[in-house]
Write a protein that binds this DNA or RNA. Structure first.
Lengths: 230, 230
DNA sequence: GTATTAGTTGACCGATCAATCAACTCAGGG
DNA sequence: CCCTGAGTTGATTGATCGGTCAACTAATAC
């Protein structure tokens, strides 16, 4: 076949591999299957990627690039309240779980447990993906810092949200039920509400500091994101 | 070789497969490797287990039997306070993470993401393992129900704890750092403390019911479990 | 028009995969 | 003492694994 548009083959390989890794995992996906579904010959794959693992790394790089335009942007465009944005992102994963009939969860979390112990290079990129996600949530929380008690560290709270989300996706897929996911989001809301409503110092260890009582700031309940507030 | 003690070969296969699945995952572990490390010939494996997947199912059944004697009992023997018991169990997984240098996390969570979408029989058993764990935690919380605000449902809170633990193990292994795990436990403690300290109704949706203010019940801080209170 | 080179092709490689099976061993029952 | 059958053996199967390579195509550079 003639030479295609620049990197078209490469991009189709990355996209196809992404989907298959997401649905079946890395090890369980054979190169032959990727080639077949991408409509590419084996030689072409190895022209762009010396090994199967290099293709995996490209997929992980791709995810880093996708976070902003595909995960954050659509939510941020609809919601302006920083805390609602966090729940909006969580709602996005909820939709993915249901729409895919539990076949797809968090693409990164999927690969994290499979590869962290055995594929160092992949592990590093997975960690970077987590960090990017965490940073985005932390930024939202930082913008709502005036509503949170002093002593609450946005980056730690963001890590907590990520932890919850990954665990919730795992359980929802295992039970084939949205209950564990909604339960996690509901309890997170309850926790956040207690933080927002509480003017006192956060009770966690890190150099707690007393702060004057703040007015209660209500946050909405339920999983679905609401209209933006102009 | 002569016939060994009854089921000795079978048990060695299950134990060896358990370890390898834990460290490498199911797909990445070849039958040949299991045979080599167990010191068993291929024919013997297929005498006991028609397929590799049947061996996996036996491993998952084995885990269900291990929950009580290996996970709960050692903690329950040291701690009597029901809430401290929950944190004691969480501490156990912390120790495993560190002792194994991040090679071993929650054995069930490991397999959950890898197999839930593709191996229905395994998925069912994984869900049963989760449920057993969840039930144990819920039982602890039920025993501490008088210290929690009315409206808090122990089974939902237990599911929340499981969610957190699984997410925390995933992140700790990915970052090769205990920070995400300790962060999750710390925030869980903070959340629980707020629940315990709060006499008001739990603010989550399910048929909330007002209840009279309860006396504050302090819970200890930090990850390590403390001495039992006789 | 010729040289260059990015990109493509598919046959082919040895290794490993899960699984099979006919032959064998040996403890326990009669 | 022989028989039976639970348990063991390891060579072997065909499929699939990730990966190689020499030949080829076509767009661009000169």
């Amino acid at each position: 076949m003639m030479a295609r548009a620049k990197n078209e083959t490469r991009e189709r390989l990355v996209e196809t591999a992404r989907q298959l890794f997401l649905r079946q995992g890395y090890t369980a996906t054979g190169v032959a299957q990727i080639l077949a579904e991408a409509g590419v010959n084996s030689g072409s794959l190895y022209y762009f990627f010396p090994t199967k693992e290099d293709l995996l790394l490209a997929v992980l790089e791709h995810y880093k690039e996708l976070l902003c335009p595909r995960v954050l942007r659509p939510v941020y465009d609809r919601l302006s309240d920083p805390i609602e944005r966090v729940f909006g992102v969580l709602h996005g994963y909820r939709e993915l779980l249901i729409a895919s009939d539990w076949r797809e969860g968090c693409p990164i979390g999927n690969l994290a447990l499979e590869l962290s112990a055995t594929h160092p290079a992949a592990r590093r990129l997975i960690a970077e993906n987590f960090s990017a996600w965490r940073d985005a949530v932390a930024e939202c929380l930082r913008r709502a810092a005036d509503r949170l008690p002093a002593g609450v560290r946005p980056d730690q709270l963001a890590l907590f949200v990520l932890t919850l989300m990954e665990g919730a996706v795992m359980l929802a897929r295992t039970y084939r039920s949205i209950e564990p996911y909604d339960n996690a989001v509901t309890q997170l809301r309850d926790y956040l509400e207690r933080l927002l409503a509480d003017g006192t110092t956060w009770s966690a260890p890190k150099r707690a500091q007393a702060s004057p009582r703040k007015p209660r700031a209500r946050i909405r309940r339920g999983t679905a994101p609401r209209k933006r507030s102009p």
